[in-house]
Simulated scan of single mutants.
Amino acid sequence: MKSSRGYVAWLAVSGIVCVAITIFAASAYVTLDMGEARPPLRGAVHYGLLVAHIFTGSVAVLAGVSQFWPGLRGRHPQMHRVMGRVYFAAVLPSSLLGLVCAQLAVVGLPSSGPLTVLSVLWFVTAVQGLRTARRRQFGAHRIWMIRGFALTAAAVTGRLWALLLGSLMPEADGLLVFATANWLSFVVNLLVAEWWVQSRGYTRTLPSVALRPSISSRSAQSSASVA
Protein backbone atom coordinates (compact mmCIF):
# COMPACT_ATOMS: atom_id res chain seq x y z
CA MET A 1 0.00 0.00 0.00
CA LYS A 2 1.39 3.32 -1.06
CA SER A 3 1.95 5.71 1.83
CA SER A 4 0.86 9.33 1.67
CA ARG A 5 3.34 12.14 2.09
CA GLY A 6 1.67 13.18 5.33
CA TYR A 7 2.06 9.68 6.75
CA VAL A 8 5.73 9.56 5.75
CA ALA A 9 6.33 13.02 7.23
CA TRP A 10 4.63 11.97 10.49
CA LEU A 11 6.79 8.86 10.68
CA ALA A 12 9.93 10.87 9.96
CA VAL A 13 9.22 13.44 12.68
CA SER A 14 8.22 10.76 15.19
CA GLY A 15 11.33 8.75 14.38
CA ILE A 16 13.64 11.72 14.80
CA VAL A 17 12.04 12.58 18.16
CA CYS A 18 12.37 8.98 19.36
CA VAL A 19 16.00 8.75 18.33
CA ALA A 20 16.92 12.16 19.79
CA ILE A 21 15.30 11.53 23.18
CA THR A 22 16.71 8.00 23.35
CA ILE A 23 20.26 9.20 22.71
CA PHE A 24 19.86 12.00 25.25
CA ALA A 25 18.51 9.63 27.91
CA ALA A 26 21.26 7.06 27.35
CA SER A 27 24.04 9.68 27.30
CA ALA A 28 23.96 9.98 31.10
CA TYR A 29 25.11 6.36 31.38
CA VAL A 30 27.86 6.27 28.77
CA THR A 31 30.54 7.23 31.30
CA LEU A 32 29.35 4.51 33.73
CA ASP A 33 29.40 7.09 36.52
CA MET A 34 26.88 6.13 39.21
CA GLY A 35 26.63 9.77 40.22
CA GLU A 36 25.01 10.56 36.87
CA ALA A 37 22.19 8.03 37.32
CA ARG A 38 18.76 9.63 37.42
CA PRO A 39 16.84 7.28 39.74
CA PRO A 40 18.12 6.59 43.27
CA LEU A 41 20.12 3.36 43.42
CA ARG A 42 20.64 0.56 45.91
CA GLY A 43 24.23 -0.04 44.87
CA ALA A 44 26.60 -1.09 42.10
CA VAL A 45 24.62 -4.18 41.11
CA HIS A 46 21.46 -2.11 40.75
CA TYR A 47 23.37 0.37 38.61
CA GLY A 48 24.77 -2.38 36.39
CA LEU A 49 21.32 -3.83 35.80
CA LEU A 50 19.94 -0.36 35.08
CA VAL A 51 22.69 0.38 32.55
CA ALA A 52 22.09 -2.94 30.78
CA HIS A 53 18.35 -2.22 30.69
CA ILE A 54 18.84 1.28 29.31
CA PHE A 55 21.26 0.30 26.55
CA THR A 56 19.28 -2.73 25.39
CA GLY A 57 16.14 -0.58 25.51
CA SER A 58 17.87 2.09 23.43
CA VAL A 59 18.78 -0.52 20.81
CA ALA A 60 15.14 -1.65 20.80
CA VAL A 61 13.91 1.89 20.15
CA LEU A 62 16.38 2.49 17.33
CA ALA A 63 15.73 -0.90 15.69
CA GLY A 64 11.98 -0.57 16.17
CA VAL A 65 11.83 2.80 14.44
CA SER A 66 13.32 1.25 11.30
CA GLN A 67 10.62 -1.44 11.18
CA PHE A 68 7.89 1.09 10.49
CA TRP A 69 9.62 2.89 7.64
CA PRO A 70 7.56 2.61 4.41
CA GLY A 71 9.09 0.45 1.72
CA LEU A 72 11.63 -1.30 3.94
CA ARG A 73 9.75 -4.60 3.88
CA GLY A 74 9.12 -4.37 0.14
CA ARG A 75 12.45 -3.05 -1.16
CA HIS A 76 14.79 -4.43 1.52
CA PRO A 77 13.11 -7.47 3.09
CA GLN A 78 16.42 -8.89 4.29
CA MET A 79 17.23 -5.67 6.16
CA HIS A 80 13.74 -5.73 7.65
CA ARG A 81 14.33 -9.24 8.97
CA VAL A 82 17.78 -8.38 10.33
CA MET A 83 16.51 -5.30 12.16
CA GLY A 84 13.58 -7.34 13.44
CA ARG A 85 15.98 -9.85 14.97
CA VAL A 86 17.97 -7.02 16.52
CA TYR A 87 14.75 -5.59 17.95
CA PHE A 88 13.70 -8.85 19.60
CA ALA A 89 17.24 -9.55 20.81
CA ALA A 90 17.10 -6.19 22.60
CA VAL A 91 13.50 -6.17 23.87
CA LEU A 92 13.48 -9.60 25.50
CA PRO A 93 16.45 -9.00 27.85
CA SER A 94 15.58 -5.32 28.36
CA SER A 95 12.05 -6.15 29.50
CA LEU A 96 13.34 -8.74 31.98
CA LEU A 97 15.99 -6.33 33.24
CA GLY A 98 13.32 -3.65 33.56
CA LEU A 99 11.23 -6.01 35.66
CA VAL A 100 14.17 -6.64 38.00
CA CYS A 101 15.01 -2.93 38.23
CA ALA A 102 11.38 -2.16 39.02
CA GLN A 103 11.53 -4.43 42.06
CA LEU A 104 14.70 -2.66 43.21
CA ALA A 105 13.14 0.80 43.02
CA VAL A 106 14.07 2.72 46.15
CA VAL A 107 10.89 4.80 46.26
CA GLY A 108 8.66 1.71 46.32
CA LEU A 109 5.28 1.06 44.71
CA PRO A 110 4.77 4.46 43.01
CA SER A 111 7.80 3.65 40.88
CA SER A 112 7.78 -0.14 40.81
CA GLY A 113 4.05 -0.50 40.03
CA PRO A 114 3.85 1.05 36.56
CA LEU A 115 7.33 -0.17 35.58
CA THR A 116 6.43 -3.74 36.56
CA VAL A 117 3.24 -3.69 34.48
CA LEU A 118 5.09 -2.11 31.56
CA SER A 119 7.92 -4.66 31.66
CA VAL A 120 5.54 -7.64 31.74
CA LEU A 121 3.42 -6.31 28.86
CA TRP A 122 6.55 -5.44 26.91
CA PHE A 123 7.88 -8.98 27.24
CA VAL A 124 4.54 -10.57 26.32
CA THR A 125 4.07 -8.47 23.18
CA ALA A 126 7.63 -9.23 22.07
CA VAL A 127 7.09 -12.96 22.51
CA GLN A 128 3.83 -12.74 20.57
CA GLY A 129 5.47 -10.70 17.81
CA LEU A 130 8.30 -13.21 17.50
CA ARG A 131 5.96 -16.21 17.60
CA THR A 132 3.67 -14.87 14.86
CA ALA A 133 6.65 -13.98 12.67
CA ARG A 134 8.06 -17.50 12.96
CA ARG A 135 4.67 -18.94 12.08
CA ARG A 136 4.48 -16.56 9.11
CA GLN A 137 1.26 -15.06 10.47
CA PHE A 138 2.24 -11.67 9.15
CA GLY A 139 -1.10 -9.95 9.74
CA ALA A 140 -1.04 -10.84 13.42
CA HIS A 141 2.69 -10.09 13.52
CA ARG A 142 2.07 -6.53 12.34
CA ILE A 143 -0.55 -5.98 15.06
CA TRP A 144 1.71 -7.32 17.83
CA MET A 145 4.61 -5.23 16.56
CA ILE A 146 2.49 -2.08 16.71
CA ARG A 147 1.47 -2.89 20.27
CA GLY A 148 5.00 -3.86 21.22
CA PHE A 149 6.58 -0.73 19.84
CA ALA A 150 3.95 1.37 21.62
CA LEU A 151 5.41 -0.08 24.82
CA THR A 152 8.98 0.35 23.59
CA ALA A 153 8.27 4.02 22.92
CA ALA A 154 7.18 4.46 26.55
CA ALA A 155 10.83 5.25 27.24
CA VAL A 156 10.34 8.33 25.08
CA THR A 157 6.79 9.36 25.93
CA GLY A 158 7.43 8.94 29.65
CA ARG A 159 9.96 11.77 29.54
CA LEU A 160 7.60 13.93 27.50
CA TRP A 161 4.78 13.35 29.98
CA ALA A 162 7.10 14.17 32.88
CA LEU A 163 8.07 17.48 31.25
CA LEU A 164 4.43 18.33 30.49
CA LEU A 165 3.13 17.46 33.95
CA GLY A 166 6.04 19.23 35.61
CA SER A 167 5.33 22.41 33.68
CA LEU A 168 1.57 22.25 34.33
CA MET A 169 1.96 21.41 38.03
CA PRO A 170 5.23 22.97 39.19
CA GLU A 171 4.21 22.74 42.84
CA ALA A 172 3.16 19.09 42.68
CA ASP A 173 5.04 16.36 44.50
CA GLY A 174 7.87 15.08 42.30
CA LEU A 175 7.14 11.43 43.07
CA LEU A 176 3.50 11.89 42.07
CA VAL A 177 4.52 13.48 38.78
CA PHE A 178 7.03 10.68 38.15
CA ALA A 179 4.52 7.89 38.87
CA THR A 180 1.77 9.53 36.79
CA ALA A 181 4.13 10.02 33.86
CA ASN A 182 5.16 6.36 34.05
CA TRP A 183 1.56 5.18 33.88
CA LEU A 184 0.64 7.57 31.07
CA SER A 185 3.79 6.64 29.14
CA PHE A 186 2.46 3.24 28.13
CA VAL A 187 -1.30 3.33 28.82
CA VAL A 188 -1.85 6.20 26.38
CA ASN A 189 0.55 4.60 23.90
CA LEU A 190 -1.40 1.34 23.97
CA LEU A 191 -4.70 3.15 23.49
CA VAL A 192 -3.31 5.01 20.48
CA ALA A 193 -1.82 1.77 19.09
CA GLU A 194 -5.16 -0.03 19.43
CA TRP A 195 -6.97 2.86 17.79
CA TRP A 196 -4.44 2.71 14.96
CA VAL A 197 -4.87 -1.05 14.51
CA GLN A 198 -8.64 -0.77 14.40
CA SER A 199 -8.81 2.36 12.23
CA ARG A 200 -6.46 0.89 9.64
CA GLY A 201 -8.50 -2.31 9.50
CA TYR A 202 -5.61 -4.60 10.35
CA THR A 203 -7.80 -6.97 12.36
CA ARG A 204 -10.15 -7.43 9.38
CA THR A 205 -7.32 -8.86 7.29
CA LEU A 206 -6.62 -11.68 9.76
CA PRO A 207 -7.73 -15.19 8.73
CA SER A 208 -11.06 -16.14 10.25
CA VAL A 209 -10.20 -19.84 10.47
CA ALA A 210 -7.33 -21.65 12.10
CA LEU A 211 -4.27 -22.41 10.01
CA ARG A 212 -4.49 -26.09 10.86
CA PRO A 213 -7.08 -27.96 8.75
CA SER A 214 -10.18 -29.02 10.63
CA ILE A 215 -11.13 -32.67 11.19
CA SER A 216 -13.73 -32.50 8.43
CA SER A 217 -11.24 -31.02 5.95
CA ARG A 218 -8.65 -33.67 6.82
CA SER A 219 -11.30 -36.36 6.30
CA ALA A 220 -12.20 -34.88 2.94
CA GLN A 221 -8.56 -34.82 1.93
CA SER A 222 -8.17 -38.44 2.96
CA SER A 223 -11.25 -39.45 0.98
CA ALA A 224 -9.96 -37.60 -2.05
CA SER A 225 -6.58 -39.31 -1.83
CA VAL A 226 -8.24 -42.75 -1.55
CA ALA A 227 -10.46 -42.02 -4.50
Rank of each mutant, 00 (worst) to 15 (best):
A162H: 12
L72V: 15
P39M: 01
L191M: 14
A179V: 03
L62M: 14
P170L: 04
C18Y: 09
W183T: 09
G48K: 03
F123K: 01
G6I: 10
W10I: 11
S223E: 13
W10N: 08
W122H: 06
Q128H: 09
Q128D: 05
V19A: 15
V177Y: 08
T180V: 14
R159H: 00
H80A: 02
Y87F: 15
V226F: 08
G6A: 11
R42T: 11
P93E: 01
L164C: 04
F88S: 12
L118E: 03
G71E: 05
A44H: 08
L206E: 11
A90S: 10
F138T: 08
R142P: 04
L151G: 04
F123E: 02
L62V: 15
A179F: 06
A44Y: 07
R212C: 06
H46K: 03
G57S: 13
S14A: 15
M169I: 01
L176F: 11
L160W: 04
G48S: 05
D173C: 04
W161E: 00
Q78V: 14
L50H: 04
V120W: 08
I215M: 09
H80I: 01
F178R: 12
R218C: 10
A25T: 12
T180N: 07
F68S: 04
S95F: 00
G174T: 10
W195F: 11
A162K: 13
L175M: 14
S112L: 08
P93A: 01
R200L: 09
V188T: 15
P110G: 03
P170A: 05
A155F: 11
A126M: 07
H80W: 02
C18H: 09
N189Y: 02
L160A: 10
R42N: 14
R200G: 10
T56L: 10
H141P: 05
I16H: 00
G43H: 03
S58Q: 01
P40M: 05
A172N: 02
Y202F: 15
Q198I: 10
L191V: 15
G113K: 00
S199F: 05
L164W: 13
S27Y: 01
I21D: 02
A90M: 06
W144T: 07
A154G: 14
G108T: 07
T205E: 12
L168H: 01
W69F: 07
S14W: 14
D33K: 12
G15R: 06
L191F: 11
V17C: 00
E36H: 13
R85Q: 12
A25G: 06
R75P: 05
T22A: 12
F55Q: 04
T116Q: 04
R38E: 13
D173S: 05
L72S: 08
M79F: 09
F178E: 13
W122E: 03
S185D: 00
L206N: 04
C101H: 02
A9W: 05
S14V: 06
T180M: 12
A90H: 03
V19Q: 06
L160C: 06
T56V: 00
T203M: 09
I16V: 15
L121V: 02
L165K: 04
S217D: 14
V61Y: 09
A153P: 02
V91G: 00
V197D: 00
V106Q: 12
